[in-house]
């Protein structure tokens, strides 16, 4: 092994099992949320492109003068992408960070 410059603040002691389990519990909460939201984005986006691939006329249907279903969906996905990101940050700031603070304080 070579000396590692890149590692900031490596914990000198091996973390105890108990504190490690607490970290893991909070971490898996975040990863679950992250993966669910990623899948939501993936499904929404692929539904849109596959909709285009399979049924172009449907997306070209006019809802009103100058506005097609496709434009509403496309703009909707742009807003959804932002909405999901904003929701995640709100959730992480409000739920995940405090939980981590707790674990970090409670740990040895």
């Amino acid at each position: 092994m070579t000396p590692e410059l890149a590692a900031p603040a490596v914990t000198a002691t091996t973390p105890s099992n108990e504190s490690m389990n607490a970290v893991r519990a909070v971490a898996s909460m975040r990863w679950r949320m992250a993966i669910v939201l990623s899948l939501l984005m993936l499904v929404t986006y692929f539904a849109f492109v596959l909709g285009i691939a399979f049924d172009k006329p449907a997306l070209g249907t006019l809802i009103t003068q100058g506005l097609s279903v496709g434009i509403v969906l496309g703009a909707g996905i742009i807003l959804t992408a932002f909405g999901l990101t904003a929701f995640y940050a709100w959730w992480a700031n409000r739920v995940y960070d405090p939980a981590l603070d707790e674990v970090a304080r409670g740990g040895p």
Binding site: M33, L37, M41, Y45, I52, G74, I77, I78, A81, T85
Partner: peptide
């Protein structure tokens, strides 16, 4: 379609 495609990577980066 392009615009939407270029944007949907960002939530993935965030999460």
């Amino acid at each position: 379609i392009y615009s939407v495609g270029w944007l949907v990577g960002w939530p993935v980066v965030t999460f």
